[in-house]
Nucleic acid binder design. Structure first.
Lengths: 167, 167
DNA sequence: GGCGGGTTTGTTACAGTGTATCACCCCCGC
DNA sequence: GCGGGGGTGATACACTGTAACAAACCCGCC
């Protein structure tokens, strides 16, 4: 899954994980542009995360990439994931200890909302200027200077609600 | 710490963890009212979390409660924490795998924002109708029915910013 | 061509977080 | 007394993440 769920008026829609090819292409372009190495391992890890329907744990990825004759240790996956997160190519879902791909660039300070479906397990990513603005005001009132924030919502996605209604 | 950082106009201020006695009193009252057992272990776990300045891990609590002659296993602490969370007496900070006390009742569906200071490690709890409203609209637009959400902001709290400016 | 230095990866070991399972205990109602 | 349910103790285990060090690799430079 990792569909995009829409965002505030004016924001670009984007597809998170909808197309592994697009994610890989973005990773490659982005690394070239920044003079960083898009190594085979990093590519494979990104590919594994992007190909999955649901958030993948580091150990899931390690298992996916391991075959008889080639073992990929979790620690290697963690390093690749750290790199990919720094570059904004994957996100970590704190409430699940798992990772999802991200195919679009986030603006600086732009808030992201993760929509985690408890039925199908998929995760959508969206953003909201409304939430961002409200949060900014709230933090200001509290005298708190933010550096990073996570907003994860668990519930039922539209598709699963529809399926439930029909079935 | 666990100070209260203020909330939207009209919302009651509340002190999370500011007064362990108040937290315990609320726990006791709430269990009596709901016909649940506020056992010694649960009380001790809540007390340990409430007395701490910063979020406590389950293993921290287990260590705190253990003395020569009496060992409290982490698993027991987890069970107590699960109970306390269900009753809304403690919150879990997902980004830290740790727990903080909560001395006030949250309204149904009321959003809570955790402000995590990366300098002093303390956590403030606040709420914002603005954020809640914006999030509600965003979720509606996405066709997503929420059951539970977490909003954690990491940064620098006012006190630490002040201290930095002075020192 | 060989050398030095930074980055990436492999490997092992370990720390930290959370859960499953079963036995025991205690209390309460029948 | 006796059965049953909730709570706790205890052990073992699964899952998540990091530290430390060695080996491989790449690239510029002499």
């Amino acid at each position: 899954m990792h569909r995009h769920a829409g965002s505030d008026a004016g924001a670009d829609p984007h597809a998170c994980g909808a197309d592994p090819g697009a994610v890989l292409a973005r990773g490659e372009a982005l690394c070239r542009e920044r003079g960083l190495q898009f190594t085979p391992l990093r590519r494979e890890v990104l590919e594994a995360v992007a190909a999955a329907e649901r958030p993948q744990g580091a150990y899931d990825v390690a298992e996916r990439l391991s075959r008889p004759g080639r073992r990929v240790a979790p620690v290697s996956v963690y390093r690749a994931l750290d790199f990919l997160m720094e570059q904004g190519l994957v996100h970590r879902i704190a409430s699940r200890n798992a990772f999802i791909p991200c195919a679009h660039a986030h603006g600086p300070g732009e808030g992201v909302v993760f929509l985690i479906c408890r039925t199908c397990g998929g995760v959508d990513e969206t953003s909201s200027r409304e939430v961002e603005r409200g949060l900014g005001r709230t933090l200001e009132r509290a005298g708190f200077r933010p550096s990073h924030s996570i907003l994860e919502v668990e519930g039922d996605c539209g598709a699963c609600l529809e399926r439930e209604r029909a079935g």
